[in-house]
Design a protein around this nucleic acid. Sequence first.
DNA 1: CCCACCTGTGCAACTAGTTGCATAGTCCTG
DNA 2: CAGGACTATGCAACTAGTTGCACAGGTGGG
Lengths: 192, 192
Amino acid sequence: MALEHAILVSLRERPASGLDLDRRFNRSIGFFWSATHQQIYRVLKGMEADGWVTSVAVEQQGRPDKKVYEVTAAGARELAAWLSSPIPAEKPRSELAIRLRGASYGDRAAVLDRVSEQRADHATRLEHYEMLAARDFPEPGTLTGQALDAYLVLRGGIRLEQMWVDWLTEYLHAHDSPHGSHAPRDTEGQSL
Amino acid sequence: MALEHAILVSLRERPASGLDLDRRFNRSIGFFWSATHQQIYRVLKGMEADGWVTSVAVEQQGRPDKKVYEVTAAGARELAAWLSSPIPAEKPRSELAIRLRGASYGDRAAVLDRVSEQRADHATRLEHYEMLAARDFPEPGTLTGQALDAYLVLRGGIRLEQMWVDWLTEYLHAHDSPHGSHAPRDTEGQSL
DNA sequence: CCCACCTGTGCAACTAGTTGCATAGTCCTG
DNA sequence: CAGGACTATGCAACTAGTTGCACAGGTGGG
């Protein structure tokens, strides 16, 4: 299960409570994996039962207590073994692509409007990631180890969002001459 | 459920049996969605119960009979409604990205080897998709309707694979000076 | 002080997807 | 004609992930 290992990576970067992890999975790590808080709590429980993590209750002022988890030696061993194990083929899962392919079996104009929205979302996220990169990694050439990896994964997020923007722009453009203006016209971004 | 709608799209392009669909989901449609044959059979059964598709048994020479499914009017209506419905946010799911991010907690050299393999896989798939594009869509400028959509989705597959190759190349390159040669050195591909 | 709201944790029931196996027809080979 | 391989369909049991809800501690406002 990849979620368990994603959590191990996140906890090795810094110990955290369930809710902390939930927040992280809507941020940096969440660029490439998502999870609901319920699943996180459940998996943490299982991981503690397996001895991969331990928890301590931490009092806070003005808030309820929280359970802060950290990785055990056994958990670190498990993570290292997983990192060296063969990588299973990624299975594609894009609902939007199905809609693009099927657009001729519905209301074309409506689909193009949805695609436009989607394109705007990806453009926004791209901007956000680029801001994070500029803010948190002003001098990428000097990075090593964990910080370099974090930067390179952020770069992947940027590349992915750029890919979406470019692709959806191509789609809208290809469909847009005969129909009127559904696509906000824009210069096509360059990858890299 | 997106799988049901992916099947509706595929069956509208051409009626098919469960096994036919299984093959398609390892080809063109499969660029952006995958499914095992068991899941396809199960979902087809449910869709028939819902009246979205009907089946007829077709005799074949030299092979067992097959059940060929096609979309009903109700199924076409359902598909059209789905195509106009709001698109839920895509949830990222890349195990490889977790490994990249966590590489410093395991055997770095082993991870780089895996990444290298992964990069080669994506390069192979990219080549395959580009071959398909050249073979099946020699004159993209002339396409309209369903054929244009099929082409544009293939373009998306190409863009996605190119993105992976570029990203993993960047990753290997960034980690490669201090360690010796893990990455097959290559010019970085251009998106578009 | 009661209520609305936020943080933090969690259960129960459901849906989606995977894995392992079963079965039946047909063909080809020894 | 027995055995292996391929096509075609399917069940059962499991794992992963989602949705809806609950509850408890604390804070701040009317």
